Measured scan of single mutants.
Amino acid sequence: MAMNGTITTWFKDKGFGFIKDENGDNRYFHVIKVANPDLIKKDAAVTFEPTTNNKGLSAYAVKVVPL
């Protein structure tokens, strides 16, 4: 089920960042999981599918909501 969130941290040079989800949890995401990576920036609103990996909470099918 899709969730909403906000990008809180973005490491462009490393290709990953973190999203604060609607429950207040931080989720890892990688640029290859983003549909529109050219719009990635700190504080951008996103929708995504929540999941977990071996390191904890993460996100896939991430879409940055255009302003």
Rank of each mutant, 00 (worst) to 15 (best):
F48Y: 02
T8H: 09
E49W: 15
E49I: 15
I32S: 15
V46I: 05
Y60T: 15
S58N: 05
N54M: 11
K55Y: 15
A45K: 14
I7L: 02
K55C: 13
K41A: 12
K20Y: 09
D43I: 03
G56L: 08
F16R: 02
N4S: 13
D25N: 09
R27W: 10
A61E: 09
G15W: 05
M1K: 14
D13H: 12
I40R: 01
R27Q: 01
Y28I: 07
V62R: 00
W10P: 00
I19L: 08
T8Q: 09
K55I: 10
T51P: 03
V34K: 03
G56E: 04
D13T: 11
T52P: 05
E49F: 15
D38Y: 10
A59V: 08
I7T: 00
N26R: 14
T51I: 13
A2E: 11
N36H: 06
E22R: 06
R27H: 04
D38I: 08
R27N: 02
D25P: 01
M1F: 11
Y28N: 04
M3H: 06
F48G: 00
D21K: 01
T9M: 14
D43W: 15
F29M: 03
N54Q: 13
A2F: 12
S58Q: 10
N26I: 15
K42P: 08
K63S: 08
F16V: 04
G56H: 07
G17H: 01
A59P: 01
P37C: 05
Y60E: 15
T52A: 12
T8F: 07
K20H: 11
I40T: 03
K33E: 15
P50G: 05
L67I: 12
K12I: 08
D43R: 11
Y60Q: 15
A45S: 11
A2N: 11
I19Y: 01
L39C: 13
I7D: 00
I32Y: 14
N36V: 04
R27G: 00
F18C: 07
P37D: 03
K42S: 06
D21N: 00
M3N: 04
V31W: 10
I40Y: 04
P66D: 12
K20E: 07
K12W: 08
N23F: 10
D38F: 09
T9H: 15
D13I: 10
N4E: 07
L39A: 10
I40G: 00
F18N: 04
D38H: 13
G24N: 07
Y60I: 15
P37W: 05
M1Y: 12
M3F: 07
T8N: 07
K12F: 07
A45Q: 12
A61Y: 09
D43T: 07
G15N: 07
K41P: 01
T47A: 05
P66N: 11
G17K: 02
Y28P: 01
I19A: 00
A2L: 14
I19M: 04
K14W: 11
E49V: 15
D21V: 02
T52W: 12
L39D: 10
G15T: 03
H30R: 07
L39Y: 10
A35F: 14
N53A: 08
N23Q: 08
K20N: 07
T6D: 03
F16K: 02
P37N: 04
E22C: 10
R27D: 00
F11Y: 12
S58Y: 08
G17N: 00
G17W: 02
T52H: 12
V65C: 10
G17L: 02
F11P: 01
N53Y: 08
K42R: 12
T8K: 10
A2M: 13
T47Y: 07
P66F: 12
D43N: 14
V62A: 01
E22V: 08
F48R: 01
R27P: 00
L39G: 06
V46Q: 01
N23K: 10
S58A: 14
D25V: 08
N4W: 14
A61W: 10
D13M: 11
T9K: 14
P37Y: 05
T52E: 12
D21R: 01
T8A: 09
T51A: 14
K33Q: 15
N54P: 12
V34Y: 03
F18T: 06
D21P: 01
Y28W: 11
F48N: 00
K33T: 15
P50Y: 04
Y28D: 00
E49A: 13
M1I: 12
N36P: 02
G56D: 04
K12H: 08
I19S: 00
V64D: 00
A59E: 02
F11V: 06
Y60R: 15
A59W: 03
H30T: 12
E49D: 06
A61R: 11
D25Y: 08
P50M: 04
G5K: 01
L57I: 05
V64M: 04
V65E: 08
H30Q: 09
Y28M: 06
K42E: 08
T6H: 11
G24Q: 05
K41W: 07
N26W: 12
G24C: 08
I40M: 05
G5W: 02
K20G: 04
Y28C: 06
T6Q: 08
A2Y: 12
D25T: 06
T52Y: 12
N54D: 12
K12P: 14
A35K: 14
V65T: 09
I19H: 00
T52F: 12
I19P: 00
N36F: 06
P50K: 04
T9N: 11
P50R: 03
N4Q: 12
K20V: 09
Y60H: 15
G17C: 02
K63H: 12
K55D: 07
N36G: 03
E22P: 04
K33G: 14
G56W: 09
A45D: 07
M3P: 03
G17F: 02
T8D: 06
I19Q: 00
F48C: 02
W10G: 00
M1A: 12
K20I: 10
K42V: 15
K20M: 11
